[in-house]
Design a protein around this nucleic acid. Structure first.
Length: 427
RNA sequence: UCCCCGAUAGCUCAAUCGGCAGAGCGAGUGGCUGUUAACCAUUAGGUUGUAGGUUCGAGUCCUACUCGGGGAGCCA
């Protein structure tokens, strides 16, 4: 028996476990809002229905104490759900100490220090439920298309992309690094299995302090042998449509709790606009943004660009100089990389990054040298080009950024149960 | 790494020109037979982040540090 399905038991005697989320008293009648993770229901404690001890208890039991309630489910228009529990008995499982989080406002620092308790709030439980639906939906999307799920290692021998700072850890008598992407391993798996996806954590030691950055976050990264850039873009579009659709269908109560304007999500249907980097620069210039061809798009530019559209926008064909070494060059313009980013609406920034991979051994070797990367640790990656290299493409979607956008919350730190941020490693 | 802002009761915040340390919530007590962040009354609760400095006098001004928040770069 859970609060979530208690409406199936109207008129019945029930027994239920939960925590005291709130209570109020009014002379000879007392109310307890009982929470069990599936929902919240009002328990009504009347003096003529319970023992004096239970009646007293209902007025003083500390918030978040755990209890076992027996009673009867009754219709009552005065309850916000339309029904409530008329209590026969309350057993205290564990009386809570004074609970630090009240119903009034708290600051971010205080809430983050109490993240393990903050998770119990209606807002945070709504976010975690939507996250659960989103990750299940994304995996189902790939599973149903015949992709094979594989896991990439967390501990890696070197900094491969070279651009981002990695977390260094001791690995017996040498150093190792926490992975910044499963992609290179995903490429190896795609050469074995055709279409694969990696779902796992990612670590970036960049000292970023913004609402879009965590030091530990989760990505889902598909990689497809024999696919090229346009097909990868179509796949990314299908993925976003699928997760938005599933969240809209399965999480309407949670979106309401978060006060998300779902009319903006209902617009999210294929096709999404596709612009090249060069076209994006033109759009930005027309909007009066001071930017020249060749510069990377910063946060302000991404926001300005996404404001021009009512749904996510793909930006493709970036200058290869500002993209990673493994990006394939555009055969019709060697200055360009066959890269794609997906910018979310409403200023949430880049939620997908990817592209077509360089399959030529010679080109890749040149690129590694030009980027000043150590070649020896990448030899296994070059082997993928030595033994039956094929065109292939893939991308990574950041779970937290996608979730922040879909739920409309301001900061990615609330999209994961225990966020890891610059200067915040606990709880 | 850089720029901006902040730190006062358990929490959220106030304190006018540098002049008695305040309120709401939470906690305790009392009241109320339908409350919806209940309400009413009442009690307790303070080394004003740390270390110096200016001053008759510092929560308030100055310096340094610590911690936190927002943003940039980088990225998902």
């Amino acid at each position: 028996m859970t609060i979530g399905n208690i409406n199936l038991n109207l008129g019945n005697a029930i027994k239920i476990f939960g925590w005291v989320a709130n209570r109020r008293s009014s002379g000879k009648i007392r109310f307890i809002q009982l929470r069990d993770g599936t929902g919240v229901i009002q328990c009504v404690v009347m003096a003529d229905r319970v023992t004096p001890e239970v009646f007293e208890l209902a007025d003083h039991i500390p918030y978040e104490s755990s209890v076992f309630v027996t009673g009867q489910v009754q219709k009552d228009p005065r309850s916000s759900l339309g029904f409530e529990i008329a209590v026969d008995n309350i057993e205290v499982i564990s009386e809570a100490l004074p609970y630090p989080i009240s119903n009034k406002d708290h600051g971010v620092a205080f809430l983050m220090d109490h993240r393990h308790l903050w998770l119990r709030s209606s807002r945070q439980t709504a976010l975690m439920k939507i996250r659960s639906v989103l990750t299940r939906s994304a995996r189902a999307f790939f599973d149903e298309l015949g992709f094979v799920s594989i896991e990439a290692p967390i501990l890696t021998p070197t900094a491969c992309e070279g651009t981002t700072s990695l977390f260094e850890v001791a690995y017996f008598d040498r150093s190792a690094y926490l992975t910044q992407s499963g992609q290179l391993y995903g490429e190896a798996a795609a050469m074995a299995l055709g279409k694969i996806y990696v779902y796992g954590p990612t670590f970036r030691a960049e000292k970023s302090k913004t609402r879009r950055h965590l030091t530990e976050f989760w990505m889902i990264e598909p990689e497809m042998a024999f696919w090229e850039l346009p097909e990868a873009i179509d796949l990314a579009e299908g993925l976003i449509c699928r997760i938005v659709w599933d969240v809209l269908n399965e999480c309407s109560a949670q979106l309401k709790t978060l006060e998300r304007d779902i009319t903006k999500l209902e617009l999210i249907k294929a096709p999404f606009p596709r612009v090249t980097y060069t076209e994006a620069i033109d759009i930005l210039k027309q909007k009066g943004v001071d930017i020249e061809w060749g510069a990377d798009l910063g946060a302000d530019e991404e926001s300005a660009l996404s404001e021009a559209f009512d749904r996510p926008v793909f930006v493709t064909h970036y200058p290869s100089d500002i993209k990673a070494f493994y990006m394939k060059r555009d055969s019709s313009d060697s200055r360009l990389a066959l890269a794609v980013d997906l910018l979310a609406p409403e200023g949430y920034g880049e939620i997908i990054g990817g592209g077509q991979r360089e399959e030529s051994l010679e080109a890749l070797e040149q690129r590694i040298e030009k980027h000043g990367l150590p070649k020896e640790p990448l030899e296994w990656y070059l082997d993928l080009r030595r033994y039956g290299s094929v065109p292939h493409a893939g991308f990574g979607m950041g779970i937290e950024r996608a979730l922040a956008w879909i739920t409309g919350i301001h900061h990615v730190r609330e999209t994961i149960a225990f966020p890891r941020l610059l200067d915040r490693l606990s709880p």
